[in-house]
Design a protein around this nucleic acid. Sequence first.
DNA 1: TATACGATCACCT
DNA 2: GGTGATCGTATAC
Length: 198
Amino acid sequence: MIKILPRRFYNRHTLNVAKDLLGCFLLREYGGKKIRALITEVEAYHGEDDLACHASRGRTPRTEVMYGQPGHAYVYMIYGMYHCLNIVTEKKDFPAAVLIRAVHPQSSSVARSDRFIRGRTAGQHRERTDLAYGPGKLCKFLKIDRKLNQWDLTKGDKLWLEARNPKIKLPKIVKSRRIGIDYAQHCREYLWRFSLKE
DNA sequence: TATACGATCACCT
DNA sequence: GGTGATCGTATAC
């Protein structure tokens, strides 16, 4: 039974949403293709007091989406060449989001995309999790860019999320410090990066 | 208007 | 371990 994550899933504390997103599926549909990917690594960015959060300097045109309704996408360009996908959390007017750092594409998705990206022939398919390991790489793999900024993720179209299979036991969740935010003073010590062990 | 820099990645030593 | 690519955003002037 496949279930699209509803708005109320995102309208909770960001740390809980982040942990609960592990093992869920990120779905991307474009050009007649549908890719399903297991979420394996996330980071939480929570409120204006979090110095690592883009909203730490308040409302700006860029951060406005994080102040909006939960369950929308916050996609921004980083270093002039990559995009990062975030899931907006918490109630309206509280700025917070979960950065999707890594996903594990389903085999059929990898096969399709490998053929599309690298022109591989049938029989050469194999797991290529490296294609989606890292926030920049997964956006490239899933063709996610700023056109999907503010996209409603509860509609089940173009980009959405589905619940994990409750019958499958989840690997242990590993907590660690967030990546690339050394400027965030004491906030860089927070263990707000969550990943599935393995 | 000008400038500094970043929630990254690939490639180098 | 280090560096360059490349441009939107925030901030300073």
